[in-house]
Amino acid sequence: MEAAVRARKAGRQAVRDVSPDPLRERIYGLLDESAMVPGVLALTSARAVEGATATKPPETAGGSGTVGVEDRAAGVQLIYEGLRLTRALADEPPWERDSPHTDSNIDILAADVMVARGFSLLARTEAADKAVETVQSFGRNETDDQQGRPTAPHALETDVFELAVLAGSTAFGASPTDSLLAYAADLAESLDGDHPEPPEPVAEEVEQAVSDAPNPRQFAPSDDPRPSATDP
Score class of each variant (00 low, 15 high):
1 M>H: 14
1 M>E: 15
3 A>L: 08
6 R>K: 15
12 R>N: 15
12 R>M: 13
15 V>Q: 03
19 S>G: 10
23 L>I: 11
35 A>F: 12
36 M>C: 13
39 G>M: 03
45 S>N: 04
50 E>H: 12
54 A>Y: 03
54 A>N: 13
63 G>C: 05
68 G>K: 04
72 R>C: 11
73 A>Q: 03
75 G>L: 00
79 I>Y: 00
79 I>H: 01
82 G>T: 05
88 A>F: 01
89 L>G: 05
102 T>G: 12
103 D>K: 07
108 I>W: 02
111 A>M: 08
115 V>Y: 02
117 R>D: 07
118 G>M: 06
127 A>R: 00
127 A>N: 03
131 A>S: 13
133 E>Y: 05
142 E>I: 09
147 Q>I: 12
147 Q>T: 13
150 P>A: 15
150 P>N: 11
152 A>C: 05
152 A>E: 15
156 L>C: 11
160 V>L: 00
161 F>V: 10
171 A>N: 03
177 T>P: 00
177 T>W: 01
182 A>H: 08
183 Y>P: 03
187 L>Y: 03
199 P>N: 10
199 P>F: 02
201 P>D: 13
202 V>H: 04
203 A>Y: 03
204 E>N: 07
204 E>Q: 14
215 N>D: 15
218 Q>S: 14
219 F>V: 14
220 A>G: 07
221 P>R: 04
222 S>G: 08
228 S>Q: 08
229 A>N: 04
229 A>C: 11
230 T>M: 08
